[in-house]
Write a protein that binds this DNA or RNA. Sequence first.
DNA 1: TATTGTTATACTCTATAACTATA
DNA 2: TATAGTTATAGAGTATAACAATA
Lengths: 148, 148
Amino acid sequence: MADEDHPDLSVLSSAIGYHLRRAQLAVFQDFTACFAELDLRPAEFSVLTVISRNPGLKQGEVAALLDIQRANFVALMDRLERRGLAERRRSPTDRRSYGLWLTRSGAQVTQRMFDLWHAHEDRWVERLGGAGERDRLLDLLNRISTPE
Amino acid sequence: MADEDHPDLSVLSSAIGYHLRRAQLAVFQDFTACFAELDLRPAEFSVLTVISRNPGLKQGEVAALLDIQRANFVALMDRLERRGLAERRRSPTDRRSYGLWLTRSGAQVTQRMFDLWHAHEDRWVERLGGAGERDRLLDLLNRISTPE
DNA sequence: TATTGTTATACTCTATAACTATA
DNA sequence: TATAGTTATAGAGTATAACAATA
């Protein structure tokens, strides 16, 4: 039981999922603010990153890599294409599928995106107490999200 | 650039937000599976926890504590009330507000909920490598989510 | 028959504005 | 006039089934 002014949240304060959610929300909110200038959401950041590093990957492959349902990937990719950042090119060997590529403009935006991202990331690393602490966090998170 | 079979995800692999999201998803999915028996979602777990530890708190206070918009809290509380787990009681001193309380049945469900929760939590602690590692993780997560 | 991209659909979570009854 | 709870609504994110074109 707790007094009136200081409610007891002790059970939640040791809950891993509760803290993961709060931390993820804080980072994503900061992400949205940092990328407002480019009007990019986290999922779009991931897609541009994957395409820029792996041009020509099939649409379904990119979706699978990022754990996005291929049905939900369509609108996401439509938006990138409508904005002229990325494009679908029919595969010459399999006319069912598309390879995904950045446009010239998309490559420029992606470069700016990486600059913004490094600033965003560096701020969180600093807040964690340095790259060593960041690495320890990523290691712990990987123990959670990597299938056994 | 990456070869065909092993796409390059190195930029994402160092992104804090990306890993936070993946870890949070893994824990929440396990949470949903563990609490299927009680048909409780994470937010409902939090609400029952807060009410059980702080009975009589006002509806708006519980919502604010959990960072839930009061407008969105209504349907959540409606469901708990309809299932007979918690109830609103008009405040005698301020007829605009309600105090929130567990029903007798809600208290029993909450007890069972805590048992399930300890099992769920213990499994993740074990996977992290022990309570020490868990504490390290929570410390790092708090550095992220606690306002400076 | 199976696969790729697509459409349609639905459910959850979240955010905002405006209403009501009380203060 | 301000506050507590409520309603309505809209936007993301996510999940599944089914269809057309192609393999």
